[in-house]
Computed example of a mutant assay.
Amino acid sequence: MAASAPEWWQRGPVDGVPDMLQPVAHMLLQMRDEVAAAVADLPVDAWNARPAGVASVGYHVRHMTGVLDRLFTYARGEALNDAQFFALRIEGDVVQETERAMLVTQLSSRVDACLDALRGTDTSTLAEMRLVGRAGVPSTVLGCLVHAGEHCMRHLGQLLVTARVGRV
């Protein structure tokens, strides 16, 4: 049996990402790897299952993609657009058989875009105020970026349990 790769935080720096943002990059890369492994060959009914009323695997995959998009938008100091609000509205929709691979690809692509954004982040802006959501909740650039990573890790944990139950 081949040894598994160490977790991302144990692999050293992610090329081009500022030192202060390495933990965010590590969280995003770890989440992407674990989601892909958890949903590999997961039947579509398990993508949509809501055991004990919890959120479905499909919801978590869509939500993580959307959270990354939205929080990195706020980190740039921008407002959400209509496409982002639409994506938010359909996060809980039933996943069709033909959508599974596309959803994983979209999440992976969003992680790549976020890594590029981290590489391009001027660390002198990390303490700058950012307003989040319709209510304009105050945060900072760093707050938005860190929350993007930790929020996805929280949903990853929920996804892992739900996917495991769906395989039983």
Rank of each mutant, 00 (worst) to 15 (best):
L28S: 02
L131S: 09
T140A: 12
V35F: 00
Q106W: 10
R100H: 06
Q22R: 05
A5P: 09
M20I: 08
V132G: 09
A52I: 11
L42R: 08
A163M: 05
H147Y: 08
E128C: 07
H63Y: 08
M1H: 09
C144L: 01
E128H: 06
Q30Y: 10
V137C: 13
L103F: 09
R130D: 01
V165K: 13
V14T: 08
T121A: 02
V141I: 11
D93A: 15
V141S: 04
F72D: 03
A87E: 15
Q96K: 15
A113I: 14
P18N: 06
G166S: 13
V141K: 00
R164C: 03
F86A: 12
R100K: 07
Q22F: 01
L29W: 00
H151M: 04
D82A: 15
C114L: 13
L156D: 04
L29T: 06
A5I: 13
G133T: 07
D41Q: 15
L160V: 07
T105Q: 15
V137K: 14
P51L: 07
L118Y: 01
R11W: 01
A87M: 11
L28C: 11
R130N: 03
D33N: 08
A52D: 14
V146P: 04
H151P: 01
L68C: 02
E128K: 13
T98V: 12
Q30C: 06
P43D: 08
C144R: 00
G12E: 03
